[in-house]
Computed example of a mutant assay.
Amino acid sequence: MAVRLKRVYDDPAPDDGFRVLVDRLWPRGLTKERAALGLWAKDAAPSTALRQAFHRDGLPWDEFEASYRAELAENPAVGALRDELARHPVSTLLYGAQDPERNHAVVLLDVLEA
């Protein structure tokens, strides 16, 4: 099982495999057709309070990452997502954030691969 990360606003590609949106909110201006999703795993995204603390209130990355890992450790959606990804040889986790290195999908991928 290979899992990749990609910004949801980037064009879908054949090598994306099974495409999974891992944001809690639907990306602005994106149609469902253009997103070309196999699954919207919004329950695996950070809680609304944590997302707002990071994006709106300026929670430092290290604190966000630790808090999100704690949420993921108790989130049954993580196991369900891991099981679904195991059914596909290649999957791509899609996120809307602009920063490719400091976003929740990076943390989620690390947890899924552990």
Rank of each mutant, 00 (worst) to 15 (best):
P14Y: 12
P14G: 14
P14V: 07
P14K: 06
P14S: 13
P14E: 15
P14C: 02
P14A: 15
D15I: 06
D16K: 04
D16C: 10
D16T: 08
G17A: 06
G17I: 06
G17V: 13
G17L: 04
G17R: 10
F18A: 12
F18E: 01
F18Y: 15
F18D: 06
F18M: 05
R19S: 03
V20P: 01
L21G: 07
L21Y: 08
L21I: 13
L21M: 10
L21E: 05
L21C: 04
L21N: 01
V22A: 12
V22H: 06
V22S: 00
V22Q: 04
V22G: 08
V22K: 00
D23Y: 13
D23L: 01
D23K: 01
R24K: 13
R24F: 05
R24Q: 12
L25A: 10
L25R: 09
W26A: 01
W26E: 13
W26T: 00
W26N: 05
P27H: 08
P27L: 14
P27E: 12
R28Y: 10
G29K: 10
G29F: 11
G29C: 12
G29A: 11
G29Y: 10
G29E: 07
G29I: 05
L30F: 05
L30G: 02
L30Y: 05
L30H: 02
L30N: 02
L30M: 14
T31Y: 03
K32E: 14
K32M: 05
K32L: 12
E33A: 15
E33T: 15
E33D: 15
E33K: 13
E33H: 11
R34S: 15
A35D: 08
A35T: 14
A35I: 08
A36R: 14
L37I: 07
G38L: 05
G38F: 06
G38N: 02
L39N: 00
W40V: 03
A41D: 04
A41L: 00
K42N: 02
K42T: 03
K42P: 10
D43F: 04
D43I: 02
D43A: 15
D43Q: 15
D43R: 11
D43T: 07
A44S: 15
A44H: 01
A44V: 15
A45V: 09
A45S: 13
A45E: 14
